[in-house]
Every structure is written in C-alpha cells, then in structure tokens.
C-alpha cells in the first residue's frame, strides 16, 4: 500500500515545478503576488487619508468660491482665485515677505550655527554647558519665545532698547515700525533655530574621523583649506538636510507672527501661512485661502526640487 507523503518526504523539486507550470493561475501564485500589496494596504490607507486626500481637497477647494460659514454655497470659479491672488498687491507683498523671511532666516541661522558648531566641537566641560545653553531655546514653545521677545523688544521697557540707550544709541520701535517688524521676526526665529542647527552640525562634525585632520596636518594644510576642502565637503549631507528642513519650517512661520505682529504694521510682516489663516478664518474667504495654500505648496516644492537638482551633486555621502 502506498504511504501518503509526509512533510519529511518532499517530492522531487523538478516534478513540483512542472506541476506548477502546468497550472495556468494557481491560488498560491496569486497570493504570492498580492501579499506585498496586502502588507502595504494599512499604511497606504493612512497615507491616502491623511496626505493625498487633504492635498487633493485643498486643490479642489482652491477652484471654488466658498466660505467657512456657508459651505453649501460653494461655487466653481476655475482659476479666478489664482488670478485675483496674483494681481493682489497685498498678496504680492506677503509672498515677498515670505521669501525674504525664509532665505534670511535659513541663511543667517545656518551660518551662525555652523560657526558655533566649529567653536563648540571640543571636549572640555565648558563647551558642553554652552552647547546646552545654545540649545535651550529649541525646547521652549514659540508662544513663550514670542512673549519673551515682545518684552525684550518693548520700546519703553524692553531690555534691547535699554542696552542701546546705555551705550548711547537711540531706542528702536522693533515690532511697530514697518521697516523693522520683519527683521525682528527674523531675529526671533534665528534665535530659536540656532540651537537645534548647531547640535546637528556638531553631530556632523564629530562623525568626521579625526585621523583625516591629522593627515591634513601632516600635509601642511592651512586651516582655511582644511575647512573648505575637508570639513565643509564632509559636512555637506548635514548642511543639505538642515537647509531643506529649515526652509520648510521657515516658510511655514505662523506662531511668532500671530503673537508678535499679526502681520503688521501695514502688512509689513505678514507671511503666507498667516495670510491663509486670515483669509480663511477672519475674512471667511475659503477659496482665496485654499489657492494661497496651493501656491505655498508649490513654492516649497519647487524650491526643494531646485535645491535637490543643483546642490545634491555637491553633497558627498560617505
């Protein structure tokens, strides 16, 4: 009598292959093909629900004339929101402010952070204390930071003017002057961001092997050439990462504007995210807010893509 094959008595593999090939679409084959997609489904559902759907919605809403207080009166207007926005002088100023704020904040913050990191990348205890001090603004909320700086920048009782007056300079109307309001916001954001950037730069510097600097010393490399030919190229992945995340976070600035200036005076410190909030929540102009959101998305997307396109070739990954 023939015994039934057990798990230990595997049939010849060639025979199995031949049998499998003779079946046009067997059930296990289908499962094998579907399995990866099934595994990915939960993540994809979350992704679609929380990323693609909101982006799609906002693009759809940007072609409508609608208001938050009367959602039923939604009307398709095509590109009208965009054409009106682009022609609007207030929006143009907001756009300019956003770009100036983003590039100034990122540029100044990264430059200061890099120099600080070079200085603080030492082992003595004192440098650890300074590192912690420099990092501390990062853990304070934007609301607290804004309140603190509003006091520091107060024209009558603020510390900054007190210092200026103590050295014989005239006081300054930091947040109430159209020519200095944006600059003041840049200052606050740089101050808050420097600690985090410095920490990441220090981590990057510490990942550069010490014997490379020793080889450079034996090669008589002057400090500036060591900096430009060794340190900066080896730190380029860190710089690249910091540039991208700083640019995205700066272009999304909201808290400091809402608390310190409300976009004023005379729209001089208004920026895209605050403008979107104003249009949607204060003026109930949903279509405008949605169109401005799409423009912000495009600006950040294009800037990031351009940076990847032109700078990624200069980034050295070990």
């Amino acid at each position: 009598m023939r015994k039934a094959a057990t798990a230990h008595e595997l049939p010849d593999t060639g025979q199995v292959r031949a049998q499998a090939a003779s079946r046009p679409t067997s059930r296990p084959d289908m499962m094998t093909r579907l399995r990866p997609y099934l595994y990915l489904t939960p993540a994809m559902i979350c992704f679609i629900l929380f990323f693609f759907y909101p982006i799609g919605s906002i693009i759809y809403l940007s072609f409508q004339d609608w208001s938050l207080i009367n959602l039923e009166a939604m009307e398709w207007v095509g590109l009208q929101n965009y054409t009106e926005l682009v022609a609007d002088q207030e929006f143009q100023q907001v756009l300019t402010n956003t770009l100036v704020f983003t590039f100034a904040t990122v540029g100044i913050s990264l430059a200061i952070s890099f120099l600080l990191a070079l200085w603080l990348n030492k082992k003595a205890k004192m440098y650890g204390i300074i590192q912690a001090t420099v990092f501390s603004p990062h853990i304070i909320s934007f609301v607290s930071v804004s309140m603190l700086w509003m006091w520091l920048m107060d024209p009558q009782f603020g510390l900054l003017n007190a210092v200026l007056e103590a050295v014989g300079l005239p006081g300054y109307t930091w947040l109430t002057d159209p020519s200095s309001a944006l600059l003041s916001l840049i200052l606050v954001n740089v101050w808050k961001g420097v600690g985090y950037n410095t920490l990441i730069f220090i981590a990057g510097l510490q990942s550069i092997p010490g014997d490379i600097y020793e080889a450079a010393a034996l090669d008589r490399s002057p400090w500036w050439r060591t900096l430009t030919r060794i340190t900066i190229p080896m730190l380029s992945p860190t710089m690249f990462f910091l540039f991208i995340i700083n640019m995205i976070s700066s272009s999304h600035a909201f808290d400091t504007i809402a608390i310190m200036t409300q976009g004023g005076p005379i729209n001089s410190s208004n920026m895209l995210v605050y403008y979107i909030y104003e249009q949607g929540m204060d003026y109930y102009n949903g279509g405008f807010a949605a169109a401005a959101s799409v423009i912000l998305l495009l600006i950040v997307g294009v800037l990031t893509a351009l940076y990847f396109l032109f700078m990624s070739k200069r980034v050295h990954y070990r």
Partner: peptide, 27 residues
C-alpha cells in the same frame, strides 16, 4: 607635524573621502 618633513600611513589610511585619488596624492 607639517614642518617635520615626515609622512605617515595610518591604520585606516585616513584618505580624504571627498577627493579623488589624484587630489589625495597631490594635496
């Protein structure tokens, strides 16, 4: 170190990773 007229080969070679072979030698 650079003024002692010595050259050193390190355990991990300590080559400059961002430079090509030519630049490593020429540096």
């Amino acid at each position: 170190p650079g003024k002692r007229d010595v050259a050193m080969v390190f355990q991990n070679y300590a080559l400059y990773p961002t430079m090509n072979v030519y630049d490593n030698i020429a540096y």
